[in-house]
Computed example of a mutant assay.
Amino acid sequence: MLVFILRRLLVALAVLMTVAVISFALLHLSGDLATAIAGPEATAETVARIRVQFGLDRPLATQFFHWMASALQLDFGRSFYFQNSVIELIGQRMPITLKLGGAALVTALAVAIPLGVLAAVFRNTWVDRLSMFIAVMGQAMPNFWFALVLILLFSVGLKWLPVAGNGTWQHFVLPTVALGYYAMPSLMRMTRSGMLDVLGADYMRTARAKGLSPARVILKHGLRNAIIPVVALATVELGFMLGGSVVIESVFSLQGMGQLAWDSISRNDFPVVQAVVLIIAVFYIGLAFLADVLNAALDPRMRAQ
């Protein structure tokens, strides 16, 4: 198990370094950062002074290693627009995104697992077809469009929930549903597929032959084994939701990491953009690494492979 974890850790570190290099290169190759910071009306002398002030006159490799060395100490510099420490901005916004992502994942699992189990048990019936229809709709609908529909229905029409903000738990209900519905289809299909694999297994027939109730056979013996890939997928989906929350946070005006990334991109706030990209990559790669470890812990065959 230790060798497996070390191998996965080395892969995760290599992927993280690759993401850091690519994001740094794309940001610096997208145009002259000094000109973007100074603005279109700035003179050549102002642009040259800003280039020296922020170290943009140095070679790209030197800039990258200096940025990485500072990032390892959680020093991402100061925001050009907000005039605050970047790490302070992220510290203020990160809890909102984590709260939204965690609530959305719990919501998605609470819907996906029962639907997946029912779809497998009642295969090729109306229950199965209804479950698959719900999954296909969740996969086909853009999450921003679904979010707007929820706002029109529950905020504008019924006036049950607030439209925007993050002051109370009610503000998180609609964003949680919108983001959770995005992750639900893949979790439901994985649960259904896993249940179909185990329903015909020998140990399931043995459990039935012992006279156990159908519910106990399905939940204790079937779901216990079918849930293994779902756990790993849920971990990865959480990373997707944390990285892809920018649209939902923008629609509902949640002041999380996604909204911070959008504001920073639109205002050419490059230190914040670089920090947000790197931190989201760390979360996603870390969760993918955790998914591999959980898979190996739950399924010894992976360790053997």
Rank of each mutant, 00 (worst) to 15 (best):
W262L: 15
S264Q: 10
S264Y: 12
R267H: 11
L260C: 11
Q274V: 05
V273A: 06
S264W: 10
N268C: 06
I265A: 10
L260G: 13
A281D: 03
F283P: 00
A281L: 01
Q274S: 09
Q274M: 12
D263N: 12
A261E: 12
F270T: 01
Q259I: 11
V282N: 03
D263Y: 11
S264V: 13
I265R: 04
Y284C: 01
A281Y: 02
A281P: 03
M257E: 14
F270C: 03
S266M: 14
V273M: 07
V272Q: 07
I279D: 09
Q274N: 04
D269A: 07
I279V: 05
A275G: 10
S266C: 06
G258F: 03
Q259C: 06
S266L: 14
I265D: 02
D269W: 00
N268D: 14
P271S: 11
L260S: 09
R267E: 09
A281K: 03
R267F: 07
W262P: 13
D263E: 14
I279T: 09
F283L: 03
Y284R: 01
D269V: 03
M257K: 14
A281G: 02
D269M: 07
I265E: 02
V282S: 04
G256Q: 12
V272S: 04
S264K: 08
V282F: 02
Q259G: 12
S264P: 11
Q259Y: 15
Y284P: 01
G258E: 08
V273I: 13
F270V: 01
I279F: 04
A275T: 08
A261G: 15
I279M: 11
V272K: 04
Q259K: 15
V277A: 11
V276T: 06
L278H: 00
V276H: 09
N268Q: 12
G256T: 14
Y284G: 02
A281S: 08
G258D: 10
D269T: 06
